[in-house]
Amino acid sequence: MKKTILALSLTTTMLFSQASFASAGTHVDEILKLQPDISKRELLQDVRMIASNTGQTEQSIIEQIYTELKNDQEKGKEEKLARSDMSTYGGSGGTISVGSSTKGNFYYTPSQTAYLDHGHVGMYYSSTTIVESVPSAGVRTISTTARKVDSSGAMVKSVTTSTTNRNNAANWANTQVGQSYSYNFATNRSTSHTGAKNCSKLIWSAYKLNGSLDLDVDGGLGVYPRDVRDAKGTVLVRNI
């Protein structure tokens, strides 16, 4: 009898865990579809690390990542629908110079690459120089006269903190010039501040390290450009 109960319970556990893995596996595939430039191995390594640091299960981490990515994708779709003149495949380029602003401020522009409308953010290292992380080029500086962005939905925002923090954040971001681009938005809150990074991670880390600010509107595991744009403590300076 005991043997039968044990066999039954083992079978049930296996069935449930297989179902869970199947669900997590599907989400992994979905995540990779939304972020095709990171490998399955990289993603699962990050998931394992976060799970071991937080005590959460790997499956719940994968679900969180998936939900955040889907939410960001939906937000992008909604914003694009609301602005019919937004370019379909413009990357983060566009038709208007970002123009000058105060050191430590940042700009946001809609940015559509082949697979995702993820937006893009860059920071004012000086009033006329941008420091930003872009795919291929990595972290670079570029003049505000040369940097053009989308004519619809782009904006400049400031961060509510001391001038010292703003200056230090911008100075720190500039020290990252030359670092390569990271395609991983999904778990970038827990990746190293130094090393490869994407555009939102650059600004998020800059203020996390200089002022202990968390420029991420919804927390979670990933910080996306729109999360920085909508973060508490950021104020609209002007629409571009």
Partner: peptide
Amino acid sequence: STTADQDIDNKG
């Protein structure tokens, strides 16, 4: 030209 970020797939 495309912008640098559009070279994400090496097809800029």
